[in-house]
C-alpha cells in the first residue's frame, strides 16, 4: 500500500532570491520511494485552509538523510504560505506522485532544457544521469537574471551549464531553445529532457521531433487531488493510433513523451 497524507517536519526553508525558495523536509518514506520527475502534494497548514495540496516537483532526494527538498517560486496563496514556513514547522505531504522521467540507458550524452522554475525536477534527474556516467548538459533560460535559480547544483554534479536570458542580463541574450539549437548543431545528444513554460516545451518538442531525438517533457497543470481521481488536470495526448485522448497530468504524467503531446493554442 502507498502512504496516504502524512505530516513532515520542515528541516530548512530558505529564500534563494526574491520569490524563489528551497524547502527541505524530513520524509524518509518519500525519500526512499521517490524517482526523478515525480512530485508531491504539499499542504502548508494543518487546517482546512487552503483545502487543496500544492503540486511541487521533487528537487532533491536524499535517501541517506531521509530528506526530500523542493525548489519553488511563489505564485499564489499556497506558495506564499509555504514561503512563511520555518524549520521545525510541520506540513502535510502526499507522495511521491506521478510517473517520473525514464532514464535512457543507451544515450551517452543527454541535454536538459529548463525554463525558469522548471529547473526544479531536473536536478535529481541530472544526479541520476551523472551516476550512470553520462555526459549531461543543462540549457537554462529565463526572462532575466533574477529568475535564474538553482544552476550551481548542476555544475557541482559535473554538468556543463549554458544560460540564456530574454533581456540579456546573464548569459546569451535569447531563449533556452536558442541554446538547444546551438547545442544540437555541435553534438547530437541521445536524449532531451525539458521542463518549463508551455511555449518553451512546445518549441523543444518540435525541435526534438524534427531532429528525431527522443524527448521527455514534464508538464504543469492546476491539480485537485494529485493522484488521479478528480480529473481536474487532464491534457491532450495521442494514443497508439494517433487519435486524441485525455491523460491526467498527475497520474499518466507529469512526464510525457514529447511527440505524444497535443498542443492546443
Amino acid at each position: 500500500m502507498k502512504t496516504g497524507k502524512v505530516f513532515a517536519e520542515v528541516k530548512e526553508s530558505i529564500c534563494l532570491k526574491p520569490g524563489f525558495y528551497r524547502l527541505v523536509l524530513k520524509a524518509s518514506q518519500m525519500a526512499k520511494e521517490a524517482k526523478p520527475g515525480q512530485f508531491a502534494m504539499l499542504w502548508p497548514t494543518k487546517s482546512q485552509e487552503p483545502l487543496l495540496g500544492r503540486p511541487i516537483s521533487l528537487h532533491g532526494i536524499d535517501q541517506k538523510k531521509g530528506e526530500v527538498s523542493f525548489l519553488y517560486q511563489t505564485v499564489g496563496r499556497g506558495t506564499a504560505l509555504l514561503a512563511n514556513l520555518e524549520a521545525g514547522n510541520e506540513i502535510g505531504i502526499l507522495g511521491p506522485l506521478g510517473n517520473g522521467f525514464t532514464l535512457q540507458s543507451n544515450a551517452k550524452k543527454v541535454v536538459l532544457v529548463a525554463g525558469g522554475i522548471g529547473i526544479a525536477p531536473l536536478l535529481p534527474l541530472a544526479a541520476a544521469l551523472k551516476n550512470e556516467g553520462k555526459k549531461v548538459e543543462l540549457l537554462f533560460g529565463a526572462a532575466k537574471c533574477d529568475f535564474l535559480v538553482g544552476m550551481d547544483a548542476f555544475a557541482d554534479l559535473g554538468c556543463a551549464v549554458a544560460v540564456a536570458t530574454v533581456d540579456g542580463s546573464l548569459g546569451q541574450k535569447g531563449l533556452a531553445t536558442d541554446l538547444l539549437k546551438d547545442s544540437l548543431a555541435k553534438e547530437r545528444p541521445g536524449h532531451i529532457y525539458a521542463c518549463g513554460p508551455k511555449p518553451m516545451l512546445k518549441a523543444v518538442a518540435e525541435i526534438a521531433t524534427e531532429s528525431g531525438i527522443p524527448c521527455q517533457i514534464s508538464l504543469e497543470e492546476r491539480m485537485g487531488c494529485g493522484f488521479g481521481v478528480c480529473m481536474g488536470c487532464v491534457c491532450h495526448q495521442k494514443d497508439e493510433n494517433g487519435k486524441e485522448k485525455l491523460a491526467r497530468v498527475c497520474k499518466e504524467g507529469p512526464v510525457f513523451e514529447a511527440d505524444e503531446v497535443i498542443w492546443h493554442g
Partner: peptide
Amino acid sequence: RSGNITPRIAETPAGLLNSVGLQ
C-alpha cells in the same frame, strides 16, 4: 464523454469549485 476543457478546478475558502463535466 471527454468532459469540459481546463481549468476544471478552482479553490475557494474551505472548498473548491469543479466543472469536470462528467468525463
